[in-house]
Write a protein that binds this DNA or RNA. Structure first.
Length: 236
DNA sequence: AACAGAGCCAACCGCGGCGCG
DNA sequence: ACGCGCCGCGGTTGGCTCTGT
């Protein structure tokens, strides 16, 4: 599983020190690099008062030499309430695998199904853990070796079933579907756009079409956080 | 103890969509 | 209808820690 998140705190201290030095040297220019505790606090205060929208004005009100984009990212990935800082659990990992199989690199959508997890975190986790593991399996499979653990089985099962259910009109569906996962507490606010269907759409042409209930798919109202039953509903 | 390479993650960048004037 | 600015997304990078030699 995901190793040592405990080092995060240590890391933060290190970054605070280095970024304070950066701030001193780059007054007036837009500040980039690691956020300091002071910046975090200011940002959180302004958002508490004005809400998490109009990022440009938030940046101005907070008096930070940061662009709105940077403030938004910091809030969504770090300061937002209900963010989970712990290891990705097996259950979450399984969910990520399934969702990635289904959705491709739509990290924000995947994050929308994992309360407390950010798209950035999932993306990082995928890039550093799961993608490697999967490519290893692909290798194994192509050289005649059999996959050996749970996720291998899950992926292939999901693959078959998803393929059976979904056809070739993925782009159409994703182009049409809109979702607002902000209805789920503590998750990334996202709006799926048509761009999403193309940009990250590497190797996932095989899903979509058909009778998939998009509204149902993104209806988070009746679920426990990691209940996988809903996935089965759409895959099986 | 010192160094190099790998791993990890926060943050930045570039692009495209949307809304508004 | 058009242009502009803002926002959100996915991809990429920079820098730190860990691990092996």
């Amino acid at each position: 599983m995901a190793p040592k998140r405990e080092e995060c705190a240590k890391r933060e201290v290190m970054k605070m020190k280095s970024s304070e030095a950066v701030m001193k040297n780059t007054k007036r220019e837009v500040n980039k690099g690691a956020w300091t505790a002071g910046e975090d606090q200011k940002l959180a205060e302004v958002i508490a008062i004005h809400g998490a929208k109009k990022w440009k004005s938030i940046a101005a009100k907070a008096g930070l030499n940061r662009c709105g984009k940077s403030c938004r990212l910091r809030w969504l990935n770090y300061l937002r309430p209900n963010i989970k800082r712990g290891n990705i659990s097996d259950q979450e990992e399984d969910l990520i695998l399934r969702l990635h199989k289904l959705l491709g690199n739509r990290w924000s959508l995947i994050a929308g199904r994992l309360p407390g997890r950010t798209d950035n975190e999932i993306k990082n986790y995928w890039n550093s853990h799961l993608s490697k593991r999967i490519s290893q399996r692909e290798k194994q499979r192509s050289t005649g070796g059999a996959g050996d653990d749970d996720s291998t089985i899950q992926i292939s099962t999901v693959d078959q079933k998803a393929s059976a259910q979904f056809g070739d009109e993925q782009k159409k569906i994703y182009g049409e579907m809109k979702q607002d996962s902000s209805s789920e507490e503590g998750t990334t606010t996202t709006t799926t756009t048509t761009s999403a269907s193309n940009k990250g759409g590497d190797d996932h042409e095989h899903y979509s079409n058909s009778d998939i209930d998009i509204d149902g798919f993104f209806d988070f109202s009746n679920e426990g956080p990691f209940n996988l039953e809903w996935v089965n509903e759409f895959l099986y």
